[in-house]
């Protein structure tokens, strides 16, 4: 079987298109590259969406944590503590068990005027359930980063905003928030890299892969189990992830440039990339 044929069969296998049966013997390098690459789609899906939605929740959590009102601050502190203080692996297990326990035929919401049935079955599927966990997890980690940045917004900036007559939402939107992002951006880049790495945990924790549609590591593990040779599939995953990491660094570097476009080019803060390990 030629490599083009293999590509046609397995390029979108992780999404359920193409050949249904996975290769069973005589694995070629082409098959391994194609299947693991097709699994990478899920890693990018989880990482990108969790990062996107998590960004907004993280901002809210950081602002809440910085609040002087006790009722607002405490929940934010606990949210950050619980998600940063426990392993993501356990969070996946716990979330899966909790989602399974939800009533199978949906929750009946009895509003006064209508009757709604909220479907819950989809939450036990990895594409939704794991995304929820990753979303909350990254929101907690980035929330802590943003909170730290929020605390170090220069006092003079706020005073200048006050002098211009800005207050409330306007001051936050125009002064505090952009400065917070500028300060947090290098750390936030690391968090993004770190989150993409964490997406490999999805199919190794509570969430089962349905019809063998898994992520990159799921297929790599499949090959390693079948051939009993870890020296080919895992380096392939490593190769793909280095590409993803480089892409993230490039993209976040561009955003960093835009955030700091008003600064003289010499004194612009450079991104220092220090990726972290598992959470």
């Amino acid at each position: 079987m030629s490599c083009v044929q293999t590509f046609q069969d397995y390029a979108f296998r992780s999404l359920g298109y193409g050949e249904r049966l996975l290769p069973r013997s005589d694995f070629t390098l082409c098959e391994q590259f194609t299947l693991i690459g097709s699994g990478l789609v899920w890693n990018i899906y989880f990482g990108a969406l969790a990062l996107f939605f998590g960004f907004f929740l993280a901002t809210a959590v950081a602002v809440a944590r910085n609040s002087s009102a006790w009722v607002v601050r405490k929940p934010a502190e606990w949210f950050i503590f619980v998600f940063r203080g426990s392993p993501l692996f356990i969070q996946f297990f716990l979330a899966y068990q909790a989602f399974v326990l939800l009533p199978r035929n949906g929750i009946e919401l009895n509003l006064i005027f209508t009757h709604i049935t909220a479907e819950t079955g989809w939450l036990t599927r990895a594409w939704a359930g794991a995304l929820v966990v990753l979303f909350l997890n990254t929101a907690a980690y980035s929330g802590e980063i943003f909170y730290g940045a929020l605390r170090s917004v220069p006092k003079g900036d706020i005073e200048a905003a006050d002098a211009y007559g800005m207050a409330g939402w306007k001051r936050f939107r125009r002064i505090v928030w952009p400065t917070m992002l500028r300060l947090a951006w290098p750390a936030y880049t690391n968090e993004a890299i770190f989150l993409f790495h964490a997406t490999t945990l999805v199919y190794f924790s509570g969430f089962p892969a349905w019809q063998q549609k898994g992520d990159a590591l799921y297929y790599a593990n499949y090959f390693a189990d079948k051939t009993f040779n870890p020296f080919i599939p895992y380096p392939i995953v490593a190769f793909y992830f280095i590409l993803v990491t480089l892409a993230i660094i490039g993209l976040f570097g561009l955003i960093n440039r835009r955030l700091n476009r008003h600064m003289p080019s010499e004194s612009r803060p450079r991104l220092r990339i220090r990726p972290q390990v598992i959470r």
Partner: peptide, 20 residues
């Protein structure tokens, strides 16, 4: 080495590689 590569890959890889 560990930068840029998810460490779970190492956890799956190192024990088998060492064993072999």
């Amino acid at each position: 080495m560990v930068r840029g590569i998810p460490d779970i890959v190492f956890f799956l890889f190192v024990p088998v590689a060492m064993d072999q």
